[in-house]
Design a binder for these strands. Sequence first.
RNA 1: UGGGGUGUCGCCAAGUGGUAAGGCACCAGACUUUGACUCUGGCACGCGUAGGUUCGAAUCCUGCCACCCCAGCCA
Length: 563
Amino acid sequence: MSNSSAPVNAANFIEDRVREDLAAGKNEGKVHTRFPPEPNGYLHIGHAKSICLNFGLAEKFKGLCNLRFDDTNPTKEDVEYVDSIQGDVRWLGFDWQERRFYASDYFSRLYEFAEQLIREGKAYVCDLSAQEIKTHRGTLTEPGTESPYRNRTPEENLDLFRRMRAGEFPDGSRVLRAKIDMASPNLNLRDPVLYRISHAEHHRTGKSWCIYPMYDYAHPLSDALEGITHSICTMEFEDHRPLYDWIIEAVKPGARPEQIEFARLNLSNTVMSKRKLRELVEQGYVEGWDDPRMPTLSGLRRRGYTPEAIRDFSDRIGVAKSNSMVDIAMLEHCIREDLNARAPRVMAVLKPLKVVLDNYPADKVEWLEAENNPQNPEMGSRQLPFSRVLYIEQDDFLENPPKKFFRLSPGQEVRLKHAYIIRCVAVLKDEARGEVKELHCTYDPETKSGAPASGRKVKGTLHWVSAEHAISAEVRLYDHLFLKENPDDVGEGEDFKANLNPNSLERLSSCRVEPGLAEAQPGSHFQFLRQGYFCLDVKDAGPGGLVFNRTVPLRDTWAKIKG
RNA sequence: UGGGGUGUCGCCAAGUGGUAAGGCACCAGACUUUGACUCUGGCACGCGUAGGUUCGAAUCCUGCCACCCCAGCCA
């Protein structure tokens, strides 16, 4: 079991707020939240923060959390996204039970509410064009001017609104607006549009509507209709809150949900906006929404991130209102901590260097016992074949080693993990290229792991595979998608793509891994000893070959020392 | 120049008048058949800034500065 679920996150201001409401006897002691994605893209780690917050709050206060698709704009939305969003939320470990809703479930009710507003003189049909509405809105510093249609009678408005709904008018010809205050310093209150005409087919309601409600109108009412007590959203909606409250106050749907805003997640070395992620996908900078380099939940999943690690991350980063950029090292810490406890250790040589043990019998094979996870003895052990010809990592040998190099070099000894101590006696080189082709070593039979004389200390321990027994695999080494912490930090005339890391993916196709990996299940996690955590790819690993994705490398003190 | 927010260690983030939690990162050491893990120690005389109130201020007051959001018939 992962230890990441143990520490409970510190309270945040939203939790405090909920507690206050409870103490004040609001909402009959109930807590009801919702996660309201628009089905127009894939979920990313920033959404995970919101999901964990909303579902987590419900869990903590024994309340409920709904999944609600905010599908009020048919031109941008699609069922493809509805499906992936549900899969991602479930994968993260949250359950909305039977409470999956759609804003489109409420189109009829929303329409009735709109007629009510019209009858009460709180909304009117406006014939101004989009461009005219814009100019009438005024500016940040100057008040707007009232629409000439603002004082139509309720009767005329009702007639026009019904005809809008009946499809008598073309897209963009009229809108329904709230009658609030064209001089408000808050632009959201300058008679905001409530309904627009769009003869578009909706992914759920088909062609039954040709007018669609705006977010500012649909959201508070959807919340009220579902009995949401705390409607949590991101900071950019803070100055929509007066409008949210206005709608609730004007319509009186019977419930008074309160909107609370928090700062969205920014993660270093990646981008989070749907627009930018889409650009990376559509222009081929990555191989899809689930490319392991993407911060999407589907990408992280394929990369080998676990839901536990992502939830732990959400807890650790906290919830506040200030703009912030979380170091991606925090996320990496979380996945390392989780996988350290649960991933079986395995021998995998990424860049093989042949080693021949001159004094080891040519036909001999020993099966050596290897623990699967020193952190967790219950994971047992396995047998590893050992023979005369082995592969070690190219990086683990240096002909002219610097000080503090604890690995193999001419004349020096190292321990082979779970096996013997060996000494390098000869180096075969391709003189033309200056490359080391093959090493000849001798092994010390007295030093077999577990044997009485095995206690002898040597500086380093290497991972290895038996050449005869090892199987081939492709390994994909992933690195940060962007070189800069903030990808938007660019020079004149450049955009975020200028900061793309050209080495975010390195494919190694001649890796050799221990034979037991032939049975590995797609999606399963491993620690490649001394290298990192890897995950058998679910898409590209077929019967023909193994493909591993590097989730995250192990921390590497040596890399720091050598610079 | 309007309105709304936010400023506490390199990065997150507690703190709500009684003398700066914690995590990540980093540094040093111990342990180690993973240069991993783990463990130990270090890491803000200071809370955007300048004043003020107070026995006492990150917390209260005033001024200033910086950054973010808002002029979609997007969400």
